[in-house]
Nucleic acid binder design. Structure first.
Lengths: 247, 247
DNA sequence: AACCAATAATTGGTCGACCAAATATACCAA
DNA sequence: TTGGTATATTTGGTCGACCAATTATTGGTT
């Protein structure tokens, strides 16, 4: 009650500090765990204190600690064994420092980096697909391209089918990690696609031909040409995005 | 009570089905949400039913639903607005299908895929680093290499310093996404490093020279040679790992 | 009828309590 | 002393209840 009054009285002063409260609670916990590690209290390889103790030490509920641990586990920094405890991953303390700070800023993907990386990944998937494709794979790829073609011919937006074709290529490449990484950056790309309206009508025809060319090279098992066709395709997208961005 | 008795009576029969229960509860929820989407009950862009309703519908607690939603949010498939609801991301329903099934299997990183992808990423980071390095960057890289050298000269294991050097190169490349992706796969690599004892004494000398070569090419701003040196370096690791694995 | 304020219902976030599995401890027998 | 078993404790997983913010509803005023 009294606290509430004080808050209202100091509203203008509170506003000046509000900017530091943008970081979410779980991020704060992550930062605290990081400090535990860098201060030497937590060496890689040994067990994390139990969630209850951490919650008490940080003065928060156990839920938030669990959230933080889950996030860290997601990025491979921790490994949680049920009914036993969480263990700091084998990676060294020095590298950990850099890792964790990066996790907190992992969303800051600027557009240039995004497209640049996508080109890299997709060139490789195209190359691998050309090397490792089976006859079954060709059927799947053809179907995916057909679906894309049908929708564009009807004048409908086909961003989904476009991406699906690319994902199928990644599957044919038969490299789990590569595909997973593509999966991770794909949502960001879609967001930016919609933001900059990359896929308008004037581009779909060219895009369709480029897709067909990529597929042809994969069918012919020509890794180099497949990669080049993919790069050409994506390079167009990049250039177009640049022009949109400068508007 | 009665159910319990039935379960005990049918223990042998239950055992036959136990194999399907290996998937974690939250994965089951993810699968269910996916079926909700593919059945058309959930179209991209509109709000997810409230957590309580989902929990009731799936016959589980709300915690598990929250876990599933958080996992999906990690991958950008959902976006949660506090006190308002979760929204299906703009990405299309078709692509979602592929995405979600992949999320469930995203941990199956086999070793070949891992090293293959690492080579790809690191070649690019080396190339970019050679293109974009500043004078300050060189100082940092040199220090990192020095730290690695010192520790190896003393005969101590220096896996951390090794990786730190690579991470520094990624930073010099100035591509957020690329660095983030390297961060993601690095823990897996370390685990496998320790498993196969890649960095033994006979290799450290060679490794050190290769690191120096990479650094030189970055200093000379020669992207092609930097990438080649990096590939050479990592290719050795791959070959060595292969031989260890076949033991 | 239109608009706005006050109130009621809904919703995700948080917390504490309970559960079952895993581990540590204590105790007894050989 | 040693080995194993039974018990006690610890631990992450799960659940239901409560909280604050948001949204929907309602009622009244203009």
């Amino acid at each position: 009650m009294v606290d509430q009054l004080l808050v209202n009285q100091n509203r203008t002063m509170i506003d000046k500090f509000s900017e530091v409260k943008v970081e979410s609670p779980s991020d704060m916990i992550i930062r605290q765990i990081r400090s535990l590690i860098s201060s030497g209290e937590l060496k890689p390889g040994d067990k994390l204190p139990p969630e209850r103790r951490l919650a008490e030490k940080f003065g928060v509920g156990r839920s938030q600690v669990r959230d933080a641990i889950k996030k860290l586990e997601f990025y491979g920094i921790l490994k949680t064994h049920p009914q036993s405890g969480s263990v700091v991953s084998g990676i060294g303390i020095v590298a950990l420092e850099g890792l964790i700070t990066d996790v907190l800023q992992i969303e800051e993907h600027d557009f240039r980096s995004l497209v640049e990386t996508r080109i890299l990944l997709e060139k490789q998937t195209a190359s691998l697909a050309a090397q490792r494709r089976t006859d079954d794979d060709i059927v799947h790829l053809t179907n995916a391209l057909r679906a894309y073609e049908d929708k564009t011919k009807r004048g409908e937006p086909a961003v989904e089918e476009d991406l699906l074709f690319h994902i199928k290529i990644a599957e044919v490449g038969k490299n789990n990690v590569l595909k997973s990484l593509m999966m991770i950056i794909t949502p960001d790309i879609v967001v930016n696609f919609n933001k900059y309206k990359v896929c308008n009508d004037s581009n779909v025809n060219k895009s369709l031909k480029e897709h067909q060319a990529i597929l042809d090279h994969i069918v012919n098992q020509d890794p180099v040409k497949a990669a080049m066709a993919m790069e050409l395709h994506l390079r167009d997208v990049l250039e177009f995005s640049k022009s949109m961005k400068s508007e």
